[in-house]
Amino acid sequence: MLIALAVLIAALLLAFTIGRYPAGLGDLLDLIAAKLAGGTAHVPPAAVDVLLHVRGPRVLAALLVGAALAVAGTAFQGLFRNPLVSPDLLGASSGAALGAVLGIYFSLGVFAIEACAFAGGLAAVGAVYLIGSAMRSRDPILVLVLTGVVIGALLGSGVGLVKYIADPYNQLPAMTFWLLGSLAATTSSDLVPLFGPVAFGILVLVALRWRMNVMSLPDEEARALGVPTGLLRVVIIAAATLVTSASVATAGIIGWIGLVVPHIARTLVGPDFARLLPAAALLGGGFLLAIDTLARTATATEIPLGILTSLVGTPFFIWLLAGMSKTWS
């Protein structure tokens, strides 16, 4: 947990002090001291503006989105008893993407786009779950993952169709940039529709942390231990899909965090959700903040977040598979 916290603090300091405008650590500390003591900071007004109104909202959004994706991934992995499940794999992200792209196509407002993304994510995960559990198979988890892949591909076609018929000058660039994931356009007004659902969803999951431990056992065992698994499964899926969809609506599609971060967190603090959920939230926030800082400072033009997380995530996933294949034999 200390490691997770250290990662987060390091990422925070870097994020506030690196950027095109030279507002450094000294300015930041001056500003914080002045705010706390109630005095005036000896910091240029432009630096104050950069720190509080440009970098500030973006830093907060990165923390929230990273934490949300990591917590949702942790919840899904426990619920489906499979360390290779992520919100992306079950179609929450692609469903939310289709919803949000439709929202942009119909020129809706921020809240309406977020509502579309949420509905899309929930519908996609619900469909994957219903289809997957309707099939009687000796390996239900494999069926579930395959169903997720198939539904995800279908939703991807839907996104492609909407992009094809969209206005190529106004809507299409917005959709493309949005689908690759970015926090560049984040302002403080984006924070409320992001913070509300993310905080609520994470709170629900944290409240159910012990029941989630029990639910990572086989279903009949969990029921025999007194857990109403059918009801709680719906609640957990809804909460995890709520935070995923809110993140996707704000930042677009950012893959891999929901898959990779839960693993790192589990390695650090073990599988008990009481410790796992906060650790995943801290690490996910720190990880995405570091990636976002890299995305806006590494080159003259911003690199889309989804691309950077995939660059980091793919080698990790392969390493994970290699490690697991040893225990399969």
Binding site: R81, P83, R211, N213, V214, L217, L225, G226, G270, P271
Partner: peptide, 29 residues
């Protein structure tokens, strides 16, 4: 669950809970 306990065939769990955590799960109900 407060009246009937179920002991399944011994199995592997997906996640590496400690033995104590596994036993504590009996207190869930």
């Amino acid at each position: 669950a407060r009246l009937i306990a179920y002991v399944p065939q011994s199995h592997f769990t997906t996640f590496a809970f400690t033995v104590e955590a596994m036993v504590l799960m009996g207190r869930t109900a």
